[in-house]
Write a protein that binds this DNA or RNA. Structure first.
Ligand SMILES: [Zn+2]
Length: 445
DNA sequence: GGTGCCGGGCA
DNA sequence: TGCCCGGCACC
């Protein structure tokens, strides 16, 4: 299999394709592929290994024995960044200094409140880092799939299912969900519930659990004060708190994160050999507890990763200032902002999804993991921007009922889905939804 | 017969 | 909750 597919680059989440960033090929898909191979098609279901009994194959991307990220060391090629306004004048550029460049020299060092989770130790030689809140995204994605079948639609109205349902008429067999049969609140047909009708379901995961990050603007240098002011400080929007955590971690010595370079927006599952400085938000409680139980045991292939991208302060300001607490994005699921690299320095452009056709991209240099678009790419999100842009509402805009009713014979979408694109022989390349025989998330109609 | 995916079961 | 599959409508 020479060419590697990076189909997800089209749809769910976008990978920042930088040649250097593709260098570190993870083993995420390998595990899945092995699992798929192990599963074996055609065998009786009863004889198949089912469930997670066998345990997921861990991605071979390192582990406790993996070499840690490069420690402090010279980095002469990196110039001082405008994001380091507080660097003492006259001091040489010390990229390895365990010092938050935002912090005022001599100012009290910010200490994360108790309970603030420490960034997880890196498990990859290239320092892949799990994007914590992406775990929530993943969980949410799974919930979407489940709720599609459970009668609590979350992906918004894809329309197809309902349209078919309507033109199909009542099913002969039980076609109602349990909720429907029980008359529970969620007893709507799949796809009927919209964020507008029930904002709670989006709020549940949008709740960014970083409740204890004190306001940081006071720690920002004067050059950053306008930025801080433009960020519309709110409890859920603290682009600096991750920086804080990193600084605090560096201070305490354990889990040190050399906070050196300019602010980096990490968007790719493979880390270039630079230090991330953003660790934003807490893990969802469930995930967090699990990771505490098995600190070094990682579900590597399931994690979302990001890498770093130098972003100028101006563009960062542009991107972040576009946020507002009352932004409609608050009711939007964490649809991955689709990003592309021709303009890697314009954050605002990065944060806006591209209306790319969902064409699988053959990329000979794409790492295996990139093919797992639904998993890997869903998490390719900017750590500083957990809330998606309003323009990513693609799947959450409810289809007008009038439209559904007007065209009872909605033709089947022409878009080939994973099954047809990749074939049964490459089932491991399918998106999760297709693998689960759900509505395809990668090739939307 | 192939495809897409809803509904539901299993662990 | 993650994963899988029966079975149906559609192509
Ligand atoms: Zn698919």
């Amino acid at each position: 299999m020479g060419a590697r597919l990076a189909p997800a680059a089209g749809r769910l989440g976008m990978l920042i394709q930088r040649e250097s960033q593709w260098a570190c090929a993870g083993g995420g898909a390998a595990g899945r592929g092995a699992r798929a191979a192990r599963r074996g098609r055609g065998r009786p279901a009863a004889s198949r290994p089912r469930g997670a009994g066998g345990g997921r194959l861990r991605a071979g991307v390192g582990g406790p024995a993996s070499p840690a990220r490069p420690g402090p060391g010279p980095c002469p090629e990196r110039p001082p960044s405008p994001l380091q306004p507080r660097h003492p004048a006259g001091r040489p550029w010390r990229p390895s200094a365990l010092r938050c460049p935002f912090r005022v020299a001599g100012a009290p060092r910010p200490v994360p409140p108790a309970g603030t989770p420490r960034p997880r130790p890196c498990r990859c030689p290239r320092r892949r880092r799990a994007l914590p809140w992406a775990a929530a995204l993943r969980a949410w994605s799974s919930r979407c799939l489940r709720s599609q079948s459970r009668g609590r639609r979350t992906w918004g109205s894809r329309g197809r299912g309902r349209g078919r349902e309507e033109r199909r008429g009542p099913r002969r067999r039980r076609r109602t969900s349990r909720c429907q049969r029980r008359g529970e609140p969620g007893s709507r047909a799949p796809g009927r519930e919209t964020p507008q009708e029930n904002p709670g379901w989006t709020r549940s995961w949008l709740r960014q659990p970083s409740p204890v990050c004190p306001p940081a603007p006071s720690f920002w240098g004067p050059q950053l004060q306008p930025v801080a002011q433009s960020l519309a400080w709110s409890p859920g929007r603290r682009p600096w708190c991750g920086h804080w955590a990193a600084a605090a971690a560096a201070e305490t010595g354990a889990g040190t994160w050399p906070v050196t370079g300019p602010l980096r927006l990490s968007l790719h599952p493979h880390c270039p050999p630079r230090q991330p400085i953003s660790y934003s938000g807490n893990l969802p409680q469930r995930r967090e507890s699990r990771r505490q139980a098995e600190p070094e045991q990682s579900d590597g292939e399931e994690d979302f990763y990001y890498t770093e991208l130098d972003v100028g302060m101006d563009v960062l300001t542009d991107g972040l200032s576009s946020l507002s607490p009352a932004s409609p994005s608050a009711s939007v699921p964490p649809a991955s902002p689709r990003l592309e690299l021709p303009e890697p320095r314009t954050l605002s452009s990065l944060l806006h999804p591209l209306a790319l056709p969902p064409v699988p991209v053959l990329s000979p240099v794409a790492p295996r993991e990139a093919r797992r678009g639904d998993d890997a790419c869903q998490g390719c999100l900017a750590p500083t921007r957990p809330e998606p842009q309003p323009t990513t509402v693609r799947t959450c805009v409810p289809t007008p009922p009038s439209r559904l009713g007007a065209s009872p014979r909605k033709p089947r979408g022409d878009a080939k889905k994973c099954r047809k694109v990749y074939g049964m022989d490459h089932r491991h390349l399918w998106c999760t939804a297709c693998r689960w025989k759900k509505a395809c998330q990668r090739f939307l109609d």
